[in-house]
Design a binder for these strands. Structure first.
Lengths: 246, 246
DNA sequence: CGTTTCAATATGTATATACATAATCGCCGT
DNA sequence: ACGGCGATTATGTATATACATATTGAAACG
């Protein structure tokens, strides 16, 4: 009955991708509740008019992603969802520094408007080329470098930024209030300082650093990618959570 | 001529699983640095004496896990570390490891019941003395240490934990489900590995590590303090969120 | 000299097929 | 009724094969 030509979400072009997305749509929308047995491979085979390997690839991925559970001889079943989201609060660096009782200062090191290259697009999550603004600057706590900031701004999303000179105020505070962000993603990792970073932060090359990268979107449009590099001694991130409902 | 019969790690029985785990071992150990081109599919085909589909399955999974990047006509390359480590949620290391497609294992190193000293009380946020349980253990991804765990449990809050032997399951999963946590706090920082940590994680002393500390409360009572130490190469925390949590 | 075209190449996807493995159902004998 | 055992079934893994697609490098061309 339910043939497939009408499928709306073509999320990757490939057939197994579409099978996967069709099924996860059913699960995430609640149409197929936890415990529901999804069609057997051979049924999907005839429904999508494809080979079992193709169906198997989709179902295997769903199983690995934890959306379904597969049992030999019995079939595949929708699993109970079990993720626990949490909120991470990251402070503005000025506030962090001032909370330490130290005078805050920002100093721009470099600023450059250019056409986005492949790496820029990867960082921002852009598919097409366009103008970007690259800024590097240093946050000081007293006399001491507190964090190095490397920022990329998508000028297609925020053209006004192209006319600004971020000499003594960082682009972060400027962006907030001008561009309402709808989503953000943080990546946090440790890294050994290379020579350039060590020089900027006045630490030894090879010393451990905390790296926080943040990507921000405003209504699906990538706005900015920023990387903060902290000397390990100077920084600890604090994130507070309260549990969410299961 | 490097045939495979000598391979040590038989991680899942299936061939593509072993290929996957062999390669990720090379990457996580640093033997194949970021940017390194891994063998072509047809080369692995002859090395493992199997079909291209089998190799392809392993490499596709590695690509989906984010360990490698595949480029048509050019080959497959080790990506900069960003072990697609789920969302910064309840920090279950088993899930992180399995998301990489690697077999997970936990091994207890040390366990000790004692009366809390001043440092214990500071870590847990206790005002009065009492019994605590100290546990140190290692989380493995395949053959490789993935994270070192140092945990302190407040036995006044969770007396049953005193009768447990956390030999092959970490205390984290055990605590969840037994003790409903009401609040948690994370501290994230970078650190250079000292000798003991370097030994445990099989990395060089002084190498940068990511340290995630988590304190958990249940109805105002401190429950546990845990410290996870990751080699920098193997880990990136990812936290994603939206501003107004409807 | 720059541009266009084309063939080579590695990956991406899909096929039909085969056999292994685990779990279940139902038959059977005691 | 009961327990065991084989047949059935769905998934798990692997194969050889085929063609699509993206990208590179080099040859051909204006």
């Amino acid at each position: 009955m339910s043939t497939v030509e009408t499928a709306d979400a073509d999320s990757g072009g490939s057939l197994h991708q579409r099978i996967l997305s069709d099924i996860s749509e059913k699960i995430l929308s609640g149409a197929w509740a936890p415990g529901h047995r999804i069609p057997f491979e051979h049924e999907l085979t005839t429904e999508y008019n494809c080979s079992r390997m193709t169906v198997n690839k989709a179902l295997s991925q769903l199983a690995k992603a934890g959306l379904i559970e597969r049992r030999r001889r019995s079939g595949s079943f929708v699993r109970r969802p079990q993720s626990q989201a949490a909120v991470l609060e990251l402070h503005d660096i000025r506030i962090e520094v001032e909370a330490l009782g130290l005078p805050y200062r920002y100093e721009r090191l470099e600023q450059l408007k250019r056409r986005s290259n492949a790496e820029d697009r990867a960082l921002l999550g852009l598919s097409a080329a366009g103008s970007v603004l690259w800024i590097e600057g240093l946050h000081f706590a007293g006399q001491r470098p507190f964090a190095l900031e490397q920022r990329l701004i998508n000028l297609s999303a925020v053209p006004e930024a192209g006319d600004e000179e971020f000499l003594e105020i960082a682009a972060g505070p400027w962006l907030i209030g001008r561009v309402p962000w709808s989503e953000a993603e943080h990546r946090i990792r440790a890294m050994a300082a290379d020579k350039a970073i060590a020089d900027a932060l006045d630490i030894d090359p090879g010393a451990p650093c905390l790296v926080v990268e943040r990507r921000t979107w405003s209504a699906e449009h990538p706005v900015t990618h920023v990387r903060f590099i902290y000397p390990a001694e100077s920084h600890t991130l604090v994130a507070r959570f309260t549990p969410s409902h299961g």
